[in-house]
């Protein structure tokens, strides 16, 4: 089967983001950008499926600016076979991305789409579920384990308080949680090979998708800072202040 893996270009998880002084957003100029970490897990899972002989071809897709080609190259270096860039410079909300991906799915015909469970920039955690809805496919979100069983996928999901297992008919959507796997580091031979793998570029208009945002950002601000408190000298003193001063025990 063919597997589609959408990947997002986001501010690197090690970067401490700064809110712009005018409150219009966060500073993204001259900031290190990387592939969304959950998407890396999604790519890794697809590559493992291919190594097991379950998947035949892996297509990585990124919706974003031209520079998102870098993230596609990273996916290709990890083992994806080819890339598609849906090039758009403005804001793309999860609903718009889901619509773009639906159009790509229509062209490519994958049996499985694996996405990261959430992007670490907008923290929406929505694109996979929205794509499943638009396609009328089943969804296995927050997956910590997947296994193909006949024409269905057995998905172990991380839920509050433990794990849940569902069987989802193929074609299906899976969103990757942190513990689905540990993504590999791109090897040098694979980085070399990735240079030669094709990346196709399309525009939202080519796909007939209206990507106009539904949300208007009125302002972005820093959360109230917590003030550092004080050090206590002993366990005895700690318990005393918790009892008498903070009155929480």
């Amino acid at each position: 089967m063919k597997v589609l893996v959408p990947v997002k270009r986001v501010v690197d998880y090690n970067v401490k983001v700064r809110v712009k002084a005018d409150g219009s957003g966060v500073e993204t100029a001259n900031v290190k950008m990387s592939m969304n970490p959950f998407d890396e897990i999604a790519v890794e899972e697809a590559v493992r499926l291919k190594e097991k002989g379950v998947a035949e071809e892996i297509v990585a897709v990124s919706c974003g600016p031209n520079a998102a080609q870098e993230q596609l190259r990273t996916a290709l270096a990890m083992g994806a076979d080819r890339g598609i860039l849906v090039e758009h410079d403005g804001v793309l909300e999860p609903l718009a991305v889901a619509k773009l991906l639906k159009a790509i799915v229509g062209k490519e015909g994958p049996a499985l789409v694996i996405l990261g469970k959430q992007a670490i920039d907008d923290d929406m955690s929505a694109t996979g579920q929205m794509l499943a809805a638009l396609l009328g496919w089943g969804q296995g979100t927050f997956a910590s384990r997947i296994e193909k069983e006949g024409d269905a996928l057995k998905v172990t999901r991380e839920v509050d308080g433990g794990l849940e297992t569902v069987s989802v008919k193929l074609p299906a959507i899976v969103t990757a949680d942190l513990r689905l796997n540990e993504p590999r580091y791109a090897s040098l031979p694979n980085i070399m090979k990735a240079r030669k793998k094709p990346i196709e570029t399309v525009k939202p208009a080519d796909l007939g998708v209206d990507v106009t945002p539904r949300l208007r950002v009125l302002k972005v601000e820093e959360p109230a800072k917590r003030q550092a408190g004080r050090k206590v000298g002993s366990v005895e003193e700690l318990v005393a202040v918790l009892r008498n001063e903070a009155k929480v025990i």
Binding site: L95, A126, Q129, M130, F142, E158, V159, D160
Partner: peptide, 21 residues
């Protein structure tokens, strides 16, 4: 986990952008 699983699906079926968290 339950709410985050279902609400984006609902939003997309209604052609709306979900607001998370």
């Amino acid at each position: 986990a339950a709410g985050r699983n279902v609400m984006p699906r609902v939003a997309a079926l209604l052609d709306m952008q979900v607001l998370s968290d």
